[in-house]
Design a protein around this nucleic acid. Structure first.
Lengths: 242, 242
DNA sequence: CCAAAAGTGTTGCTTCTACACCCATGA
DNA sequence: TCATGGGTGTAGAAGCAACACTTTTGG
């Protein structure tokens, strides 16, 4: 939970469901690295996952989509609910107290943001080249960090990312992941690099190519002349069924 | 959400987290049928999943375990969090209003149980022969219903069961399910019947037997002389690693 | 003509499917 | 001894890992 617009910061959180937060793990892929969007709070050393809250009459999914959209500038985002984090031990209001104080607020102990939150985790898969990381108004910046080189995160946000990656990996087999993380067209090599990065292991090139083509979800578009001294790879794109 | 003890029924739900419910789909297996525990409210025609709420300092998992334990009398229950139901359209306070009125209460519109709830779904797998369905104090009865022959349920509880079954099926491959749904010892035929019931399809006997044995999680205990005019099957049990 | 990367062929192993066969049991 | 259900054997198909080979590109 983070990135709240200014008007959300009032003592009792009018208009929002209390004690429930949404944390989104927004994955992007670039330069052969899997990255996530993190918010950095101004005037503090705190980093956190993009998060938000559910409006009183808002669908849970829509709230997650709203958060992911506001941070990326995209409006057609692939989202997957992956886990709920509900241990009482994750209750840690200290960071928010510091953040608010660093920004000139003096919240009372009963401020709604200082209460316990049950956090519903969503992961998003976005096309790195189309997303424009956008910090929430006033409060923070927002940037990509690769998974192997992340700053320390508040609360249990590191664990949330770990769990998101775990579920993403488990879903690799039966859900099409590349469609959301890659640009419109891409080479088979790029697709393989994506899979290898998510799984953290090498895959055999011939096997991967055949497996992907056997799914009948890819079509060849054209060849890509990269200027490299080697055979030009085909470009592929996902067939959308239209 | 249902089965609340009397002391939970006060206007503002003191001691509980508001707007969040837990619904548990408690599966049991008996007579070759997959069954779920349903609560029937007295003085109404309403049936619902066993449910409950999270105490202010209680872990989410512990709240789910508490609900499942109270309904079954068991204390070592296998639980799996499977989905969160958060559409605003599922908000339907009517049944609770009727239930409370049928039991002599006159809740105000602002009664906490008549507010919107986001419901966290857990499924439980229990040994039918050990569970003793126990209704929550005063309010309702509690019984097994087989999946193909269920009463109409309040709100979106049917959809919740459908989703639970979906996830249970998906988990059949990589989680050991029989251990929790069967008694201490069982025949290979019984285990196969369980799988066939969950998947709603026939499996090949030799293949099933070999697959199960190849997992090295079963050990033979003894033969079972059923009195039937046929070869006595072996009894198996899950090796626990002790 | 060479190096590098992409695409395809092939071989052998493992796994699964489908059916056949044998074994034990009590009427 | 027969019907019934449980356990095992096995041939063929399918799938996959591993490696070899061919093709294309620019230096």
């Amino acid at each position: 939970m983070s990135n709240k617009p200014a008007d959300e910061i009032n003592e009792n959180g009018t208009g929002f469901i209390k004690n429930v937060a949404i944390d989104t793990v927004i994955f992007g892929f670039h330069d052969n690295l899997l990255r996530v969007l993190l918010s950095a709070y101004k005037n503090t050393n705190y980093f956190a996952l993009p998060g938000g809250f559910i409006r009183e009459k808002e669908n849970l999914h829509d709230a997650a989509r709203r958060v992911a959209s506001e941070r990326t500038g995209l409006d057609d985002i692939y989202l997957e609910q992956f886990y709920v984090f509900g241990d009482y031990s994750r209750y840690d209001p200290q960071p928010f107290k510091v953040i608010m104080e660093a920004n000139g607020n003096r919240p009372s102990e009963s401020h709604w943001l200082l209460q316990r939150f049950i956090s519903i985790g969503y992961y998003a898969l976005v096309d790195f080249t189309r997303a424009t990381p956008t910090p929430a108004a006033i409060f923070d910046s927002c940037n990509w960090y690769d998974l192997n080189n992340m700053p320390e995160l508040i609360q249990d946000h590191s664990k949330i990312i770990t769990k998101a990656l775990e579920v993403l990996r488990a879903n690799l087999d039966h859900k099409v992941v590349g469609y959301n993380l890659l640009p419109e067209s891409f080479t088979m090599g790029e697709l393989q690099k994506l899979y290898e990065t998510i799984l953290s292991k090498k895959l055999l090139r011939p096997a991967f190519q055949r497996k992907m083509l056997s799914l009948c979800i890819l079509e060849r578009v054209a060849k890509k002349y990269s200027g490299g001294a080697h055979k030009a790879p085909y470009l592929y794109r996902f067939v959308t069924g239209e």
